[in-house]
């Protein structure tokens, strides 16, 4: 057994190890490759692709998101993103109690639709108490009432070449020199036909508030909050997401967030 003592050599080499660690953790060294470089693209394609395939394998088309009980509703639903649209068309519609609101259903469908809020509310409805998980990390439980998206799609009769459902929104999320950007989102037909995927007009037993997306918002319960477009104006059935926005399938997807947001 040797008695412990720190030799000068041990101190020096130890200092080298610690020093290189400190050097690495001046963490702007990785900024370059992550600002839209090949490394970032590779990581995104490999990890997100793997995550997506494993999730599809695990939950398929039918597993339901966890549902909760009335006693789990302990607070108002936390709003996020745009909470008070300032777009003129929206404000006019809101002033009229959304009587002029119409949900347009178009694209790869045999019967394009234009549905008023009353017509949507006359359709079969589903009510679910679910946990909303934000990409930022927080969660909030609320009760949602709406018409299953599958029902609306059946009314419009989706054509066989359809692959995605695109949601166009009334709210402007970004104003820049190049113009205004309206929020938009998209999901595939598996999630579109999932029983918990609804177009919600009610929340916690009341009409959907403006802050939470009145008059109509999407609920896709097996994904993160940013997929669940608020202030939905139109549904477009499409075979490709490339023509819209920057082609990634949604406002946040165009800014580097994954399209399939199950993690």
């Amino acid at each position: 057994m040797t008695k412990f003592n720190i030799s000068r050599r041990a101190l020096l080499s130890g200092g080298t190890v610690a020093g290189s660690g400190a050097l690495l953790s001046g963490c702007d060294v990785f900024d370059g490759v992550l600002r839209g470089g090949n490394v970032r693209d590779f990581m995104e394609a490999s990890a997100n692709g793997l995550s997506y395939r494993v999730q599809r394998l695990l939950i398929g088309g039918h597993s339901l998101a966890q549902e909760f009980t009335e006693t789990d509703i302990r607070q108002p639903m936390r709003p996020n993103g745009v909470t008070a649209p300032t777009d003129r068309t929206y404000l006019e519609m809101e002033a009229g109690g959304f009587a002029d609101y119409r949900l347009e259903v178009s694209g790869l469908v045999q019967k394009p639709l234009s549905l008023s809020l009353d017509e949507l509310m006359a359709m079969p409805s589903r009510t679910q108490i679910t946990r909303h998980d934000c990409v930022e990390g927080w969660s909030c439980i609320a009760k949602w009432t709406g018409v299953p998206l599958a029902h609306v799609l059946d009314q419009a009769v989706v054509k066989s070449e359809a692959r995605f459902i695109l949601f166009r929104c009334l709210d402007t999320i970004e104003r820049s020199l190049t113009g205004e950007i309206k929020y938009y989102e998209s999901i595939d037909l598996i999630d579109a036909r999932h029983p918990q995927t609804i177009l919600a007009y009610g929340m916690n037993g009341e009409r959907l508030p403006v802050a939470n997306g009145a008059p109509l918002r999407l609920r896709v319960e097996r994904q993160l909050g940013y997929k669940m477009a608020k202030y939905v104006r139109a549904i477009e059935v499409v075979d490709s997401l490339a023509p819209f926005g920057d082609g990634q399938g949604g406002y946040w997807e165009d800014r580097g967030y994954e399209w399939y947001a199950g993690i």
Binding site: C27, D28, F30, M43, G256
Partner: peptide, 13 residues
């Protein structure tokens, strides 16, 4: 990582 605020890239990494 990255040193500036970028949740999307942080999640990818």
């Amino acid at each position: 990582i990255p040193s500036y605020y970028d949740l999307a890239s942080g999640r990818i990494v």
